[in-house]
Every structure is written in C-alpha cells, then in structure tokens.
Amino acid sequence: MAAQTILDIENAHKQFDGTKAVDGVSFTVNQGEIFGLLGPNGAGKTTLIRMILNIFEPDAGTIRFPLSPDGRFQPERIGYLPEERGLFENRKVSDTLVFLAGLKGVPAAQARERALLWLERLQLERYFHRQIRELSKGMQQKIQLIAAIIHKPDLVILDEPFAGLDPINQELFRDLIRELKSQNTTVLLSAHQMHLVEDLSDRIFLINKGRQVLYGELREIKRNWKEDWVALDFRGDGALLKESSLVKSAQIENGRAQLILRDGVRPEEFLSAIVGKLEIEQIAIKKPPLHHIFVETVTRGPHPHPVPLPERERVQGEGGKGDR
C-alpha cells in the first residue's frame, strides 16, 4: 500500500526584506513516516516550518494537507515543538498543559488526565502543581514535548528536540519519537544531531540558502552517494594505500586506515587493487555517515552525480549552492 501524503509543499517561496529565506521548495511528507528536515543554521528551516504552521503565508507556492478537509491547515491536528523554547514562567505546569491542550480542542478534564499520565511517564508527576520556573531546562523541554503531543496530533513538528539535552534524555526523546511513529503519527524532525536523524529518519530533505540540496529516502541517498568509506586493519606497508589512485583521502595510523575512495570507484576495484599487497586483518566498506553527507553537500554543493529526483524537485543551475 502506497503511503498517503499528509503534507504537500509545492514551490514555496518566502522572502524578507529582499532576502530569499525559502526559494522554491517542494517536498511531500508521507503519513506515518519520520521525515528529517535538515540544513545549516539560517538555511530557511524555521521559515519553512512557520509556513507549514500557517504563521507565515508563502509569497508564492502552496502548502497543502491532503488528508484534511479542503487540504487546509488544521491547528488541532498538528503539534509543534519550536526551536526557540519557552513557557509561561509564572504559571503552573498543570494549568499550562491544560491551556495549551485546550487551544487544540482537548476538553480540560481529559487534558488534565493526559498531562498527568505523560508527566508520570517522564517522572515529572510531582511537578504537576509547580510553577514552570521551578523546573530545570531539560524538564521544561519535556513539558514542551508533552504540549506538542498531548492532543494526539497526526503530524508533529519537532524543531531541534535534542538541543540542550544530556545523552540519556536524548535517548529518551529518540525512543518517544519512535513510539510516535509506531502509533502512525507523522514526525517532521529538524535536528543537528546527525547520528540521531540517521537513526530515525525514513526520508530527508536538506535545505541550504533557501533551496533544496538533497531530498529522498535516506537509504537511497546513501546508496547513491558518490564515495565509499573503507575502514581497514592491516599488516604491511600502508604507503601504497596513500599513493593509490583509487583513494581520495587516507588517514593511516598503527596499521589502521580510514580511507575515502574516489568518486565512482567501486569497492571491488579497490579490493582487487590491494589483494596480495597487504595482509588484511579486518575490512569494512560502507557509505559515509549522514554527518559527512550533510557537511559535504552544504559546503561543496550537491555532488556531480546527484541522486535522481522527481522531475519538479530537481535543483536547477549552480547559483545559491556551495561557494567553494
């Protein structure tokens, strides 16, 4: 069964004072998936999210929600954890959650019940009647996450949910996001922790300077990535690895090599080139992590053999991409 589209953005533009914050962006988000919206700071992610949330209207293009009546934005079906964090400092946790849930159409009694359940789950129940300013930053972040999902939305937009969290809480949030997915809640995830994004996302959209630079299924993107990484433990003279015409860059230390193969070099080619010349103890050939793909794409622009994209989403020309 093909996934249904829950969010459809087509050729969205937005500019402020002559600066193009979002410049012709198109993508779709499927129901029930975790969709990574990535990009460096100032790439236009927040503007894009605000357009999705109907806070800004796009200057051009459309943003539709095919599953809702008339395809329109329905605030009570969407949850949002903003990157800029904050809650009413002088209000009680209980009152705040009930109010925010109420704005999303949850009756007060039900909201209290759900709030309490969530707080118990996150071991914050004794703060139910406390004022928010008594909570630590991490706790406040949990309260905000609860506020984003307490009304059981179809689509949750999490903007930098892991920022400022310790590793334990990062894992907690990661597990919660997985749980949302298992309940068929769609998650639009924007984050800088590439290992977590890689771990969670089904598909990603990478935006830079207001434009798309990468878009598609994460697995596909990696499979089509131009370079392979080789991790090699060996005995013998490693110099030949450095000198090999197949290798783009190499770090060699104590019989352990980290290599990046030249674009388009297939793993078999490399293997046959070294067989018999080195004693291989252990070898792993894999695609680079998302972190590397992110950095490469943003700093150098999309690689020369872009992953195949749907027609209308293809980035045209070179302008607006990496400067180097």
């Binding site: 949330l53 806070i55 605030p75 009570e76 969407i78 949850g79 949002y80 903003p82 990157e83 800029e84 964090r85 904050g86 809650l87 009413f88 925010l100 704005l103 999303k104 905000q144 506020a147 984003a148 937009i157």
Partner: peptide, 9 residues
C-alpha cells in the same frame, strides 16, 4: 518565546 507555541495553535 511562548508565542512560538501559541501561534501554532
């Protein structure tokens, strides 16, 4: 920054 949350509702 509470406005961020409020304006989404």
């Amino acid at each position: 920054r509470v406005v961020e949350i409020l304006l989404s509702s």
